[in-house]
Design a protein around this nucleic acid. Structure first.
Lengths: 238, 238
DNA sequence: CCACCGCGTCAAGAAACCGTCAAGAATCGG
DNA sequence: CCGATTCTTGACGGTTTCTTGACGCGGTGG
């Protein structure tokens, strides 16, 4: 396992989201010497975008970013990708670690950190990814005239952007995550609104109606957002 | 993700390989209160055996064992299992961490450790396991011209989709679950409609008729959905 | 032979479910 | 604080699905 890695130009790609130039200057040559391809982002927004466009094998994320809460970055990424996220943070408090790990981070390394340990933890992350044979996720979803850019949270119909509210978007991405499958009323309500709402099926009717209105050509006879009477809803491709 | 977990007797099983009674006494109630089932081992040899016999969801391993090098325990486990291994160690040296992680450990927590962090890292490990476990969920059932995609809840006859109502589908999947065997009226009614309906055999006649009408080529002389007079029904393959 | 029983079929009324609209309430941004 | 957006809730009508009863068939046993 611990074989020496020589520099190779097509190794795993890492997106490094880190605003401190000092750390970037330090990490960049180290990672490159280990054979990684590296893409740097200096803000959370940029980081999410880079992760969406480059589809890296690993994301290394500093929690202390200027523009955005680090936890928010994790959540944004986890909306559409399972890419391993290793958090770097100056805050070594237990509750920070717990919050980041529960938000979807895979590992947490407190600063100042030993670079050898970071590299070892990166190898662990790569091992996991290889094991589940997970390809880097495509950050866009498309069906018919509908296109969803999950990284940027934007939705287009026939190349015209349509605005979805937060709830509408969450409902749509939930359906996308399980595309093809029927999601029961319960599942949808729990995932989108939270467990306490598991019985408020009326919400579903209202919001499915709004989604159809915004996305379907003929909302009354939907082609993609289908009803399974008595069961739930499903998103179908073609 | 950070929902409160109540104690439940059938949660994930943890094998804790740890020779210090102090730490065992401390961890045991904590893990149990989180709903884990816990098996303790006080030596490396015992730990490997327990992991093999109990098939736990997680292994927590102290590196400083009396009988065996901790790295050796990791290697022994990795010979046959991919179960997540979280290492606990009093040695916080970088090279110890690297060695353990590269030997196959998934995480490394230095003592003294914060128990909340350990629990969070355990949740991460469980997440990984759950993720890689749920790839092959593409079960379909087929007999004659009839094809049932159980994952997507769809039914086809001669490659044309037919729509089943909720009750029809439930009846069909119940028959599929017991394919080949005779199901009595009682069994079917209880499984599909619920115990209070155990005597409403008329329902069965109506719905079996509808199923045959939708699935059989010659509903009056069914090839697959057969009646066992006086007993119940059965689904046969050829 | 005929009454009876289990089974299959059909259909109509009842009930449940779904989509739609719209009006307040709550929330957000300025 | 105000205006705009979004969420929440209720009402209503159309549709699907369930439930129930009636009836016919065929086998069985009196």
């Amino acid at each position: 396992m611990a074989e020496a890695r020589l520099p190779e130009p097509t190794g795993p790609m890492v997106v490094l989201i880190e605003d401190e130039p000092q750390i970037r200057r330090f990490l960049r040559p180290t990672l490159i010497s280990q054979g990684y391809r590296i893409v740097e982002a200096v803000s959370g927004e940029d980081g999410v975008t880079q992760a969406a466009t480059r589809q890296p094998e690993i994301v290394i994320l500093d929690l202390g970013l200027p523009d955005m809460d680090g936890l928010e970055v994790i959540r944004r990424l986890r909306e559409w990708t399972a890419v391993p996220i290793i958090v770097l943070s100056a805050r070594g408090q237990e509750r920070d670690k717990i919050a980041a790990l529960d938000a979807g981070a895979d590992d947490y390394v407190a600063k100042p950190f030993a670079v050898g340990e970071l590299l070892a933890r990166m190898r662990v992350a790569l091992r996991h990814a290889a094991q589940s044979a997970r390809e880097p996720t495509d950050s866009t979803f498309a069906v018919g005239d509908i296109r969803v850019d999950l990284g940027r949270r934007r939705v287009f119909v026939s190349d015209a952007e349509v605005h979805l509210t937060r709830t509408e978007y969450k409902l749509l991405t939930t359906l996308i995550r399980h595309v093809g499958k029927v999601l029961t009323h319960r599942q949808l309500l729990q995932e989108v609104w939270g467990p306490p709402y598991a019985d408020q099926t009326h919400y579903l009717r209202v919001y499915m109606g709004q989604l159809r209105h915004k996305l379907e050509v003929e909302p009354a006879r939907p082609r993609f957002l289908l009803t399974e009477p008595g069961v739930g809803y499903r998103l179908v491709t073609e």
